[in-house]
Design a protein around this nucleic acid. Structure first.
Lengths: 183, 183
DNA sequence: ATTTACATGTAAGGGGTTACATGATTTG
DNA sequence: CAAATCATGTAACCCCTTACATGTAAAT
């Protein structure tokens, strides 16, 4: 049920339309909880049905824009959820499945995939660092900003971890290819 | 569709019953692709329906044991999937959502959660290291074992990464609590 | 004989992805 | 006026989780 609470959090930061929420998810919340616009619209309706948020149609806006705001009940629910313990999710990684399958299915194309993932993570890392520079450098940070910075550091570190591991994996796979050529 | 291919991989390593597969997922495959026994049984039926695996009822076994084996078509499908590129999945992390929500919902209970996650990751790390010691130490490693070792190192590193970040987060949250007490 | 471990399944509900559909306003 | 952008939505499908249900064989 985290999508619901990610939305409540985002709406607490700023009341928005579904469309705007989707954009904000894409821009920053996606780093720890991604969602498509369809998911967001569906959940907003449920949240309104459950009395946790309220929508008001904005006149003179394009496309019948609806502004969503968190209601007191929504704040109660969010606080209760934050305090509720949830164990970390299992990590699911198709690339690691592919590596394990390679023993039977061959390594064709795998090295390219490792490189592609490396590039994705490097790009993501660069994006995080840009945000870090822009939002958190040389500023007096209030508590909210310190929490956001902590989250961002989790993202940067995670990307850096995968970059390092992928480089190790690339070396290892290259070595395998070479020892195959020798035969 | 990675569950399907994780199962094909596991069955390539050793033909098994659904029950045994579920245990093996729980013991080692879970590290990069987890699945419950219900998921596994359902997917095995689909795989059989699609002609990728074949089951034979084992007589004199408890509970009508069925042995599943990969068919040639299954091997073709697995090889095709391994070579197919898939971008890395978005990371979803409820704890990070909670941290971000804390700015509005309060930090009650969060420090305890950070400690609990720390313990989970430390335990997982210990489990991985035990496997590493048992399976990969002082042995001549063939290609399959080298791939598995690489996967295991991904797991160890990931746990270590989270342990480090959680320690940083705990320090940061403690500092916040203390500066609140001062007022 | 009872408990434990083995073994397979159904059902319900929620979450996530992709495709499709529609319409309004601003910009060029 | 055409295209791009803003804005909301339906439908279908698959995957995952949880709860429930049933039965067999080995061990104590």
């Amino acid at each position: 049920m985290s999508l619901r609470h990610a939305i409540l959090t985002a709406l607490s930061e700023r009341s928005s339309s579904g469309f705007e929420l989707a954009r904000r998810f894409d821009k920053s919340i996606r780093f720890f909880w991604s969602a498509t616009h369809q998911q967001i619209y569906r959940e907003l309706k449920r949240l309104e049905g459950d009395g946790l948020v309220e929508s008001t149609l904005q006149p003179n806006s394009r496309g019948n824009r609806k502004l969503y705001e968190v209601l007191p009940q929504g704040r109660v629910e969010l606080a209760a959820w934050v305090a509720r313990y949830e164990p970390p999710r299992a990590h699911r990684d198709a690339l690691l499945v592919r590596l394990r399958a390679a023993a039977f299915a061959g390594r064709a194309g795998l090295l390219e995939q490792l490189h592609a993932h490396h590039e994705v993570h490097a790009r993501q890392r660069a994006e995080y660092l840009k945000i870090a520079e822009h939002d958190f450098l040389d500023r007096e940070l209030d508590e909210s900003a310190r929490l956001q910075h902590l989250i961002l550091r989790a993202g940067v570190g995670l990307e850096e971890y995968w970059i390092r591991w992928l480089e190790e994996a690339i070396v290892e796979l290259r070595a395998m290819e070479e020892s195959n050529e020798d035969r």
